[in-house]
């Protein structure tokens, strides 16, 4: 098993190898320490090919493809701000005031690819691709032309999350039936009233 470069080295290597690509390292706080690389959609396929065919990396095996649904979220943090406040005698004084700031992060859909190398026996390298939002711009370039193993799994992510993979050879529903309309794995999915599970898992 040959050691893999650190995520930062990976970023530099990819950005040098694929001109114009933007790679962001997403750290992972859990003890597993499997950090991932966020790749911009325009260069995703070029980056995938680069990783697959690079003689030292040879990530020829895409093990897992999955969708993740991130809802709109709002984080509140308390920030101390210096402000000019009118004093009791009419003069202005500078005092510290605590303010709550709200940061809104719009939701998005994400596809996660776990790559390994059967040749070099290393891994995982985790790629993430993000769609612009959850409603009308849910397109992500398909990596099925690079790794065949993504074929069914991308179909599944399309089926259950509604991520549209551009360039997928056969993008149809796979687990749900063809006439089904909603995306059941989304976090805000409401099951129909006659769903027998609705009673058990409210």
């Amino acid at each position: 098993m040959s050691p893999l470069p650190t995520p930062e080295d990976f970023k530099a290597q990819i950005e040098a190898g694929v001109p114009g690509s933007v790679v962001t390292v997403i750290p992972n706080g859990s003890p597993s320490a499997q950090h991932s690389l966020l790749v911009d959609n325009d260069h995703a396929r070029a980056v995938a090919l680069f990783l697959r065919d690079h003689p030292d990396l040879r990530l020829d095996y895409c093990s897992l493809v999955t969708g993740v649904d991130w809802l709109d979220s709002e984080t509140t943090e308390k920030v101390k701000v210096k402000k000019l406040v009118d004093g009791p005698d009419g003069s202005q004084q500078e005092t510290e005031v605590e303010e709550t700031r709200k940061t809104k992060r719009p939701g998005y859909l994400e596809a996660v690819y776990h790559l390994f190398s059967m040749d070099k026996k290393h891994g995982p390298v985790i790629l993430r691709l993000r769609a612009a939002n959850r409603t009308d711009q849910t397109n992500i370039p398909s990596l099925t032309p690079v790794w065949r193993s993504a074929e069914f799994q991308e179909r599944e992510a399309f089926d259950l999350y509604g991520i549209v993979f551009d360039g997928h050879p056969d993008l149809r529903r796979i687990l749900m039936w063809d006439g089904f309309v909603d995306f059941p794995m989304r976090k805000d999915y409401v099951p129909p009233a006659d769903d027998p599970l609705a009673e058990v898992h409210p």
Partner: peptide, 30 residues
Amino acid sequence: KAGEAYGRIESPKGELGFFLISDGSTNPYR
């Protein structure tokens, strides 16, 4: 703790993997 992990084993059928994302609560987020 919030984070993610991918664990895999050699099951009789092939690579059986589980990918978990935790948001720090008692349920897995993904």
